[in-house]
Design a protein around this nucleic acid. Structure first.
Lengths: 154, 154
DNA sequence: CCCATGTCAGGTCCACTGACATCA
DNA sequence: CTGATGTCAGTGGACCTGACATGG
């Protein structure tokens, strides 16, 4: 009841639209990954490790836009599942580099195909120029937001 | 360590960029709202109720892209805080329309100013045409994603 | 009967904060 | 000392599944 009624200026709010788009994408990815038993953050972590092997927990946290603590929990889960391995002692400093296991690579290739299919659907309505344009605009938004959050290392 | 190294094709992934943008916005809004004690979802709920008084829990859940259960918990919190009132009996059907209290309106006007300032910063890097363009592109993405998730009413 | 709604229960995952120790 | 890191503890939010009652 009263689902699509007046739409005040919610649709003119970029924040709301951003939330809506992100939500739609998250739901789609979540559903696509469900059969594999991976969550979206877990997939993201695996993908990051595949592309940049040896990232530390803090590195991964930054790249995934979460805190070290959150990423730590996530990493533990992946280690328990045998998808990720971490050195038990630090060569230098305290950073413990993480890497995918063989099982992790196998799991990822499947998940990666799935996710790419979702992304393909996401961009199916846009031609190449529009995709570039969207990237430019979003990047501009991020840059406009960034400076104000500095100095909070999180 | 190894924060900005090679950037494989993460920056070419619209999904990743979307996540990054959304995350930056969420952090900014979160920080801006912190002094008032409101969370972003709580603010969103208040804003929705101000613009469309009488929405039911299920209505709000749909509009905020969360489940009925999550919105139910959120609503209870707002009721406990005296910001929202709900009819105790349904006039028709089972839907219990919700409305802002006077305190809710007061709280919202403050929060609304705060959030609009953040949105202004978000769009500060874009001229009017670019904002329109961004809206068009994001909407196209949402539409491309939507149909596939139907039939899962959630 | 079918569907949407409101609600309760249990459990999981993720994210945050705060705090502490370690190491370059 | 400072800064980055890993980690423990606690909390809260949001999700899911399942279930049930009620009203159109």
């Amino acid at each position: 009841m009263s689902q699509e009624r007046d739409r005040v200026d919610l649709d003119t709010s970029l924040g709301y639209l951003l939330k809506k788009t992100h939500s739609a994408l998250r739901v789609a990815m979540d559903g696509a990954l469900r059969p594999s038993g991976l969550s979206v953050p877990q997939y993201a972590c695996l993908e990051l490790l595949a592309q940049r092997p040896g990232l530390s927990n803090a590195d991964l946290a930054r790249s995934a836009f979460v805190t070290r603590q959150s990423m730590n929990v996530l990493l533990r889960g992946l280690q328990r599942a045998g998808l990720v391995k971490r050195a038990s002692v630090a060569e230098t400093g305290r950073a413990l580099p993480a890497q995918l296991t063989a099982a992790g690579h196998r799991m990822l290739t499947d998940a990666s195909r799935t996710i790419h299919a979702v992304e393909a659907r996401l961009t199916s309505a846009l031609d190449h120029d529009q995709q570039t344009q969207l990237r430019v605009l979003l990047t501009a938004c991020v840059d406009a937001l960034q400076p104000a959050e500095t100095s909070t290392t999180r």
